[in-house]
Amino acid sequence: MTAERKMRINDVQVKFEEGETVLACARRAGVRIPTLCHFDGLSDIGACRLCLVEVEGSAQLAASCVTRAEPGMVIRCHTTRLAEYRKVILELLLAERNHVCSVCVANGNCELQDLATEHQIDHVRFDYQFPALGVDLSHGQFGVDHNRCILCTRCVRVCDEIEGAHTWDVAGRGGTSRVITDLAQPWGESQTCTSCGKCVELCPTGALFPRGTSVGGLVRDRGRIELAMAHRRHESCHG
C-alpha cells in the first residue's frame, strides 16, 4: 500500500496528487511562494531560485517548482533564511542589468518590480554591472530591451512549447548570456517568428514590449494565453 499522499507546508496539512510539485501544492493550499521563471502551463526549469523552500531532514534547499511532493514531507516556505536569500536573489537581478524603473516601459506593471517592493528592497548591496546592452526594434510589432531581461526564459519556453515556433534561445554563458531570436539575427529578420506575441505577454519585466510603448505604458493581457494553456493542460490530462 502506498503511503497517504499528504504533506505539511508551513504547518498546513496538504493532500496532493501523484506527480504534483511542492509549488503547486503550496499554491493550492493558499501559501504564497514567490516565482519569476515559473509560469503555469510551461515546463519548469528552476532557474530563478526564488521559490526555494526548506525541506525537513534535508540540508539542501529545494526549488519548489521542480520538487515533487512526497508523502510525509515537511516544508517551510517563509523562514528568515529564505527571506534573506530571496532578497539577495532579487538584488542580484537588479544589479546585473539596468533596471531604472522610473524610465521603464514596464513601470507599474512588472513582476520583478512587484517582488522587489514585496521584499522591501530599498537599496542593492552589490555593485551595479549595467552592461550596455542593445535594444532591438527591428520587428514590426515588438521590441526587446536586453537591459531589462532577467533570463527567466519564459519567452523561450512559451515560443517553443505553446506556439511551437522556437524562435527564442539563450546564447552565451554566465554574465554574457542573452536571449536571441533564430541564430542571433535581428528579431525582424527571424524566419520562424509568427508574430503571435505570446513571449511579449509572458515576459515578467520590461524586456519585451509592443513597439511604440512609452514609459509606464505597458499593459499586459494574459487572459487569452492563460486560456490556451489551460486548454493544453486539459488535453494532456485527458489524452
Binding site: 542593445g134 535594444v135 526594434l137 511604440g212 512609452s214 514609459v215
Partner: peptide, 14 residues
C-alpha cells in the same frame, strides 16, 4: 542614445 525614441518624453522629463 540607443534607447527607443518613444521613451524620450518620459526620459527627458527626468
Amino acid at each position: 542614445e540607443g534607447r527607443p525614441f518613444w521613451e524620450m518624453p518620459a526620459l527627458t522629463s527626468r
